[in-house]
């Protein structure tokens, strides 16, 4: 893949591909039956695309991807109000992931995409819950502990997928 002399055009093209990937994963996941009936949680596989963008393209591209997917995802899924939830979750999770990625680049031995992904998953849940509390009242906090607990295995799994995807891409190109 990409040499160090990446042009903007090639980055932009890959950003577009990753956005399409994120939206597709998001949509497919929406078709699946709920993992835990009664609990508004998803695996969050679309975050694979954001992790790949963070790793290969940088913060700005990852932020653009996150913004696009948080607005378009709920629209495709048919729930415009969902955009509020996903924007809030997406913003918090992006901030957390960028912070950890900065740490990762500074001292590469300190944290891997696993940690970045788990932090992203946790803060995504938190951001959505904040909107839930704002719209539905404090009772929504009842979801906090199960959602936050589940964000750990979900984040680890999504991180694993991202690491695998990045390896495969490096081998292929």
């Amino acid at each position: 893949m990409a040499s160090r002399t990446d042009t903007n055009a090639s980055k932009l093209t890959r950003l577009a591909l990753l956005t399409a990937l994120a939206l597709t994963l998001n949509y497919l996941e929406g078709l699946m039956p709920p993992l835990f009936p009664g609990l508004p949680v998803k695996l969050g596989v679309a975050n694979v695309a954001v992790l790949i963008a963070l790793e290969l393209l940088g913060y700005r591209y990852a932020a653009l991807l996150q913004l696009t997917r948080c607005i378009l995802g709920p629209l495709i899924g048919g729930s415009p109000v969902g955009a509020l939830y996903s924007l809030s979750g997406g913003a918090l999770s992006l901030l957390a992931m960028c912070a950890l990625c900065a740490l990762k680049q500074k001292r590469s031995a300190s944290v891997s995409l696993f940690g970045v992904s788990v932090a992203g998953a946790y803060f995504h849940s938190l951001g959505q819950l904040l909107i839930g509390v704002a719209l539905a009242g404090p009772a929504a906090m009842a979801y906090y502990t199960p959602m936050a607990l589940l964000s750990v295995p979900a984040g680890l799994f999504v991180g694993l997928l991202a690491i695998l995807a990045i390896r495969i891409e490096k081998v292929v190109s």
């Binding site: 950890l100 990762k104 944290v111 940690g115 970045v116």
Partner: peptide, 8 residues
Amino acid sequence: RVGDAVVV
């Protein structure tokens, strides 16, 4: 990495 464990 160690950081992953810390995050978890």
